[in-house]
Amino acid sequence: MGCWLSKQVKHTPGYEEPAVLAAETAFTVSEVEALYELFRKISYSIFKDGLIHKEEFQLALFKNSKKNNLFADRIFDLFDLKRNGVIDFGEFVRSLSVFHPNTAQDEKIAFAFRLYDLRSTGFIEREELKEMVLALLNESELCLSDDLVETIVDQTCKLVDSNSDGKIDPIEWKEFVRKNPSLLKNMTLPYLKDITMAFPSFVMSSEVDD
């Protein structure tokens, strides 16, 4: 009789080799391996199927699986590249790579545009801007009068919409962000450079058995 391997490493569905993901993203192989540990932790938190569901994403972000949030929903939808309602490991790594400190600014600018283009029309429209401001106010319990909200939205549109067609296109967005780089601060996660320190156990044990 032949001798079979007694243990096989069981990966999550949609697992991709770290070397492949590292070649396509800003991460090194060991950083991708460390991200796998984080991915497993999140994807086994509720449904235990090795895929990140929206509730698990909310739990990881807010410590509350039922907390709905417009922006978290948008991020989840953008991470869900295959549009099948869950995030697999490859999607997780490729999407997080946008937030890596070494990723080109243009990529971050484009991602932020898609994030704020709520209805994917190719433009950030006034109504979308207002919806986001209202969502933020609702989340922060900050009270501003309706008039002030309208004024802030109008003023911002006027600032960004340089061709005055009533909506913000990707070129206007890019110009505006170049003048206001602080708008991109949430598009960079310094943690991603220290990820192997945050999750060293995977790197040390290399492959985790189930």
């Binding site: 972000l61 922006f71 997080l96 401001v133 802030i152 708008l183 949430n186 990820i195």
Partner: peptide, 25 residues
């Protein structure tokens, strides 16, 4: 005239846009 808050500056402070919490243990 005092400068008004830029809506995008406000939005970028949203908790839902802070992915850093994913890395908190």
């Amino acid at each position: 005239r005092p400068a008004l808050m830029n809506a995008f500056e406000l939005i970028s402070t949203s908790q839902g846009l802070n992915l850093g919490t994913l890395f908190e243990k």
